[in-house]
């Protein structure tokens, strides 16, 4: 299972970024080989509009099974993520990536539903 996180940096101890479209990094944790892949998303700062769909497009390419984030994606990004078949869990704010992962495992995050 591949799990994506919206984060402020890299590694287990970095803080989650509650924003989706303008998240600073995307971390993808691969449970099978217990490894991280990280993607710098900070160039979305320059986007006046459309940061959401753009970040969602990146996730589409990274193709994780699950996304763990804070506030949840907006309407446009949600359409893309739905197309990608990624399950979304929200509410991971003000916690480290490790804490967010544990909260997800303990079923303490909310499943995001676009409809």
């Amino acid at each position: 299972m591949k799990i994506a996180f919206t984060t402020k940096g890299t590694g287990w101890e970095t803080m989650m970024d509650p924003r989706f479209g303008r998240t600073e990094y995307i971390l993808v944790y691969d449970e099978e080989n217990e490894s991280f892949n990280d993607f710098d998303n900070r160039d979305t700062t320059n986007e006046a509009h459309g940061a959401g769909p753009r970040t969602a497009q990146k996730l589409f390419e990274l193709n994780p099974d699950i996304l763990i984030t804070g506030n949840g994606p907006g309407g446009n990004a949600a359409r893309v993520l739905e197309q990608a078949g990624i399950e979304i869990f929200t509410g991971a704010r003000e916690m480290t990536v490790k804490q967010a992962f544990e909260a997800y495992k303990a079923a303490k995050l909310e499943q995001f539903n676009n409809s």
């Binding site: 986007e47 509009h49 459309g50 940061a51 769909p53 753009r54 969602a56 497009q57 589409f60 446009n76 359409r79 893309v80 197309q83 990608a84």
Partner: peptide, 18 residues
């Protein structure tokens, strides 16, 4: 330039508001 057209696998998605 506006992220209004995305290539998603076998789909092209257009965001008309953007």
């Amino acid at each position: 330039n506006y992220n209004a057209v995305l290539h998603l696998g076998v789909h092209i998605m257009v965001f008309s508001e953007l």
